[in-house]
Design a protein around this nucleic acid. Structure first.
Lengths: 354, 354
DNA sequence: TTGAAAGCGCTAACAT
DNA sequence: ATGTTAGCGCTTTCAA
C-alpha cells in the first residue's frame, strides 16, 4: 500500500481456473478447514481469523463450490418444483408462494416445466432428482408409473399440489377440482340457467380441468340437465381463443344461456365477445371461468370465477418441505385440502335461494 | 420367478440410502467404470454388457448422482437464467425461447428471479454461480459492482439480454430501448398528437422502461414538445392500475391527446377505461404500450405497441451459450441488436407522411 | 480454537 | 472392450 509504486497497468492476469478454498487458505494463511468453517459460519473461529479469512475471500472474489460442498456433506439446499407451464398466470403465482416461504429458510426452489406432457415430466423429474434435491413439489396427482416410482424412492419429502382428488405418494396440498365443478354447477342451476355449454382446454392433458368437467356434468346430470354443447382448444392467445370458441358455440347452439369455461382467460375472451355483440350478460347469457386470475381485475365486467388458492397452495407446500427438512422425523403424508370460494362477479345471476 | 412362492407381503424393505453406481455394478456384475460408461452412453461397451447394466439400473431404480458426476468431470449442464420477474408475460416468453434451444442440447436452464432488486440479483447470482453453471443469461446491463465482478470472473459465457444500451460484460442480445422510445415518439408526433402523457412503472427499478422514457422525451424535446403529465405505479393488477392511472391523468390533464404506457397491460387497462367512458380512440386520444403481449390479442380494440422480440432474444441468447459451450474457443463478446417493430394497432392514428 | 486425514460418488486417464 | 487408480473441492470426524 504505502509507497507501492505499482503502475496503472491492467489488472493482474486472472487465473482462468475457478478459485478454491485452498486459494483462500493460502491467501489468508489459515487452514482450509478453518476457512471452510468461517465461510459457512459453523464452528468456533476466533474473530481475528474470521476477519482475515473474510477479507481474503472477498478480495479474491471467491465463490464456494456447492457441488463439492453438497457431495461432501450430502446436503443439497435445492427444492425441485415441477409444474406444467409458466405461460399462464396460475403457476407463477404458486411459485411466488413457494419462493416466499423458502426465502425464510436456506432452501432454494428450482423450477422444471413439463408442458403438460407425461414423458417430459418423467424426464424433468429424473433430471432434477439426479441433483438430489431436499424435496420435491410437483403439480398434480397423475404421473407415469416410472415417475411415481422415482418419487416414492427419492427418499425426500414429496408434495403433490393443486389437486386432492387421487392417491398422493406422500404429502398433498390443493383443492378438489371435482368438488369445484360440482359447486359451480350448483350455483349455475340455482341461478336458473338450464342450457349450459362447456368451453375448455383440450383435456386429456389437463387432469384438473377434466375433473372439474366431470364434477360439473355429474351435478348437472343429477338435476336432469345435460350439457348443450362443448368446444375445446389447444394453443394460441387464450383471450382470442375464448372469443373464437364462444362465437363457434353460439353459432352452433344459439339458445345456450350459460357458458362455463375451463379457465378465466378464455372466459374473459368470451365475455368481451358477448359484450362487443351487445349480448345481455348475465341476463341472456351467464358466464363463469376458473382460477380467480387477478390479472383480469380491471375488465369492465367481472367474470364469475372460482379461486384456486394458488398462492396458498404454494405457501403450504413449501412449509411442509421446510418443516420436514428441518426435522426429518416429522410424519410423512400430510394432506391439506383448501376450500376455493366462488366469486359470482357480474356474469352469474344471483339466485334467490341461499 | 418360476415357482417362487413369495407371499404377497409388502415390498422388500427399501434401503433408505440412495443407490450408487456401486449398487448397479454389484447387481450386474460389471465394474463401476463400465456401468458409468453405459449410463452415459460414452465409450465402447459390448451390447451384452450394455443390456445387463441397463436392466439392472432400471430394475433397481437407479438415479445417477449429478453432484458427484459434475464434481468428477468438472462439467455442469446447467445454465443460470436470471430475470426480474415471472409475474408478467414478458420473461416467461424469453424463457420459452431459451428452453426451446437448450432442449436440443444437453444443457438445462435454471431460473432465478430478482424482483427487480439489485441486492437480490447479487444474492441469486452468487447462489447460482456456486453451482458452477456452464453459462449465465441475465436480464439487463445494470448490475451492482459485486455482481459485475462475479460475472466477469465466472469463467463461463455470460449473455446479458433484453437491452443493448450499455456496456456488456461479455455477450449481449436485445433491443435498444432508447431507440424504441424515440421511434414511438416519432410515430406519435407524425400522427399529429401533441399533448402527450406518460404512464409507467416506477422506474428506478426498471432500467429498460427508464431508457424508453428517456428516448421518448428526448425525441419529443427535439420537436419542441414536452410531456404534459406523467403518472407512476408499483404493485397490483396491471389492468386495474392502468384504469386508475388513466383516470387520474385525465382528471388532472383533461386536454391530453396521447397516452404512452410503459407496458401493454397497463395500456390495455387504460384503453378499456377510455372505451367504457365513450372516449373516441384514437381520434380524441391515442394510446400506445410496449412489449407486444400476445395475451392481449382478443381485445376488441388492438393497442398500439412495440414488439420487444422476447422469444427471439431468448433463442439467440441460448444459441450463444450453446455454441460457446460446444466450442470454448469461440470468441466472446458477441453483440446482437434486434429490431423491434411498431404495431400501430387501432389506437394510433396513421400519419400522412411515411 | 485449529488442523490432518479420510472420503462423499463419480469420471479422466491410463492400463490391459 | 473392460478394469484400475487417482482425484474433483469440499466437509466430516477425529486429534491436538
Amino acid at each position: 500500500m504505502a509507497g507501492n509504486p505499482n503502475g496503472n497497468r491492467h489488472q493482474i492476469m486472472r487465473p482462468r481456473r475457478p478459485l478454491t478454498l485452498r486459494d483462500v487458505s493460502e491467501a489468508s494463511g489459515v487452514s482450509e478447514m478453518t476457512v471452510s468453517r468461517v465461510l459457512r459460519g459453523k464452528g468456533d473461529v476466533s474473530i481475528a481469523t474470521r476477519l482475515r479469512v473474510q477479507e481474503a475471500a472477498k478480495r479474491l472474489g471467491y465463490v464456494p463450490n456447492k457441488i463439492a460442498g453438497s457431495l461432501a456433506s450430502s446436503h443439497v439446499n435445492l427444492v425441485a418444483v415441477i409444474i406444467p407451464s409458466l405461460g399462464n398466470m396460475v403457476f407463477p403465482e404458486v411459485l411466488s408462494g413457494i419462493s416466499e416461504v423458502l426465502a425464510t429458510t436456506s432452501l432454494q426452489p428450482v423450477v422444471g416445466v413439463t408442458d403438460y406432457m407425461p414423458e417430459k415430466e418423467e424426464k424433468v423429474l429424473f433430471e432434477m432428482l439426479s441433483w438430489r434435491p431436499a424435496g420435491v413439489i410437483i403439480a398434480g396427482l397423475e404421473h407415469s408409473e416410472a415417475a411415481q416410482a422415482m418419487l416414492a424412492r427419492a427418499g425426500v419429502p414429496v408434495v403433490e399440489i393443486m389437486d386432492v382428488d387421487g392417491d398422493p405418494i406422500d404429502a398433498c396440498v390443493g383443492i378438489s377440482h371435482r368438488r369445484a365443478g360440482r359447486q359451480m354447477a350448483e350455483a349455475i342451476i340455482a341461478a336458473g340457467y338450464r342450457r349450459i355449454a362447456f368451453l375448455g382446454t383440450k383435456m386429456p392433458l389437463d387432469h384438473r380441468a377434466r375433473k372439474r368437467f366431470e364434477g360439473f356434468t355429474q351435478t348437472l346430470g343429477k338435476a336432469g340437465i345435460e350439457i348443450v354443447d362443448q368446444e375445446f382448444y389447444s394453443g394460441g392467445s387464450a383471450l382470442a381463443k375464448g372469443r373464437e370458441m364462444t362465437q363457434t358455440v353460439l353459432a352452433r347452439s344459439p339458445d345456450v344461456d350459460f357458458l362455463y369455461y375451463s379457465n378465466d382467460m378464455i372466459g374473459a375472451g368470451g365475455l368481451l365477445y358477448l359484450l362487443d355483440n351487445g349480448v345481455d350478460v348475465p341476463g341472456q347469457i351467464g358466464l363463469a371461468g376458473f382460477n380467480g386470475v387477478e390479472l383480469l381485475d380491471g375488465l369492465s365486467c367481472r367474470l364469475a370465477t372460482m379461486d384456486a388458492c394458488r398462492r396458498a397452495v404454494g405457501i403450504k407446500a413449501a412449509q411442509i418441505i421446510a418443516a420436514r427438512n428441518a426435522d426429518p422425523a416429522l410424519p410423512a403424508g400430510e394432506m391439506v385440502e383448501l376450500t376455493p370460494t366462488l366469486d359470482p362477479g357480474d356474469t352469474l345471476l344471483r339466485s334467490f335461494v341461499a
